[in-house]
Design a binder for these strands. Structure first.
Lengths: 119, 119
DNA sequence: TCTATATATGAACAGATATTCATATGAAAA
DNA sequence: TTTTCATATGAATATCTGTTCATATATAGA
């Protein structure tokens, strides 16, 4: 859609100053995309459950699958997404791979979300 | 899938104590679902952009559409989702409806996400 | 080496989601 | 009341996403 095609309301409603100010402080496209991508990772209850389990201690894929009562493949797929988002890290120990939380933002973000809900 | 059907690894890998501890602290199904639902709302760059714009000042739907260069219907649909998640509130003034951030969790959550990315 | 076990991954499919289009609703002005 | 403008919403569609199934890879042990 071309910029000039965007419909807009009459003089009363358009606040040029506010629009301009908003655009100045807006992060660039790439960053907005990255932020949304990060929250997308938190936006699935299987992944939230994995993170909650890892709050307690590191676990291998098999433990995670058993705890969450899901098959190993589904867990592996989700772990891959969590790893790409740098929310978890894996460490191989023989045949097993143990996963743990990558940093403390995970906890903070989930806690904030939980706080928002409980209002 | 029945519980007994879940595949699991041999003695080495299963850590019953850890699994039990993890399950004890796990929020119940409803809450896990709600948390995921909330983050799902943050997991879309259009909605993130709307929230960033509202960081600066309240705006009517038309202003939002123009600022983000999107059509009014798309913005209205997204505002509905944001409103349901109690992230924004609307106030009618004549023909226009002005939207603003519902509370400060919005800022905190997005800031935390941004922090995590910039590492 | 060959076998068994733990994890990873590609393909397929079902279900969810964002945008667009058309239209309805709500409010103000004529 | 009728018209006009701002917003809301249902339906349709294209795209994306999570799970499953089958299979590949990696490691340890025989």
């Amino acid at each position: 859609m071309a910029l000039e095609d965007v419909e807009h309301c009459e003089d009363f409603c358009v606040h040029e100053d506010r629009i301009q100010r908003a655009n100045e402080k807006m992060p660039d496209e790439d960053e907005l995309y990255d932020i949304a991508e990060l929250f997308k990772v938190f936006g699935d209850s299987t992944r939230i459950r994995i993170l909650y389990v890892l709050f307690e201690s590191e676990l291998c894929v098999c433990d995670l699958a058993q705890t969450l009562n899901m098959n190993q493949s589904a867990i592996s797929h989700q772990l891959k997404i969590l790893k790409q988002a740098k929310l978890v890290t894996g460490r191989r120990e023989g045949k097993s791979v143990f996963y743990s939380l990558a940093d403390d933002h995970v906890r903070t973000i989930i806690d904030q979300g939980r706080e928002h809900i409980e209002e």
